[in-house]
């Protein structure tokens, strides 16, 4: 699997570095323009908005690129190499998933760090790092940061696996037809069905775990605490049954995708 990941990285790194370079140039341009045009004024809202747009563009382009990479295996001649390597379907899907997440993490971190550096260069302020950290820790705890990061990773995995599954299912169902966007229709339908199931499971078993204290509460308790202003960490609560359901669905979709590409796809 590591070997396959190596070739996945080798095959995509030039594009990713290109995207990164483009985004960093754009961000530099945005910051420079704003700082020259409105020196000394409060322009935070504008540049944050523009940065978010650039970030969104990057995420979308990279996402489409990564999604396209899996689709190419199913429809292009490269599948003749990939699917005759002595690898299981799960190993192929797992490698693609990990490399995709790796690129998102690298892009996200690099762009975030660059934004901070640019902001500090163009608007130098005396910052006491320990004060800043203490301020941040008042707003959000380390535990919450970890939970948020894990949540982001899980949502990324969940989304990618669902897309891969939709593509594989589309390929298996319509064997010899390359119907553009059909996988997206399957993806939308599956997303709807899964979300509906998740909602119902949550309603059926309304017990939540507070991710700050790891106490299990019912929905009524959480509502009461919120009304009384006791539990400020309500946003860090998650429905237990819905979370288990979501994890189980992701695992099933992952194994299902591996099964489809190993046992069902006809090239």
């Amino acid at each position: 699997m590591i070997k396959y990941m190596k070739y996945e990285i080798k095959g995509t790194y030039k594009y990713i570095l290109g995207i990164l370079a483009l985004v960093l140039i754009l961000i530099t341009g945005i910051y420079t323009y704003i700082s020259r045009a409105n020196r000394g004024s409060h322009i935070g809202t504008i540049f944050i908005g523009l940065s978010v747009l650039v970030l969104f563009g990057t995420a979308l382009a990279t996402f489409l690129y990564i999604v396209g990479s899996f689709r190419k295996e199913l429809y292009d001649d490269r599948g003749y190499l990939t699917f005759t390597l002595p690898l299981t379907g799960n190993q192929i899907v797992g490698s693609k998933l990990i490399v995709a997440l790796l690129w998102f993490a690298i892009l996200g971190t690099a762009i975030a760090m660059y934004n901070i550096v640019m902001a500090l260069i163009l608007n130098p302020v005396e910052v006491n790092l320990s004060e800043l950290l203490s301020m941040v820790s008042h707003i959000i705890s380390m535990k919450e940061i970890v939970v948020i990061i894990l949540g982001l990773i899980f949502n990324g995995v969940n989304m990618l696996v669902l897309i891969y599954f939709s593509m594989a299912l589309s390929r298996v169902t319509f064997r010899n037809k390359r119907i553009g966007g059909l996988w997206f229709v399957i993806f939308l339908i599956l997303s709807g069905v899964i979300a509906y199931g998740q909602y119902n499971v949550g309603e059926l078993l309304p017990y939540y775990v507070d991710l700050n204290t790891f106490n299990i509460e019912s929905m009524n308790t959480l509502r009461h605490q919120l009304n009384m202003g006791i539990n400020t960490g309500i946003m860090m609560s998650t429905n237990i049954a819905a979370s288990i359901y979501s994890i189980a669905i992701t695992v099933i979709l992952f194994i299902g995708t591996g099964y489809l590409i190993e046992k069902k796809i006809d090239l």
Partner: peptide, 11 residues
């Protein structure tokens, strides 16, 4: 296996 097409990755 030698397929009847160019199966190597283009990059």
């Amino acid at each position: 296996y030698l397929p009847d097409r160019n199966f190597l990755y283009k990059w």
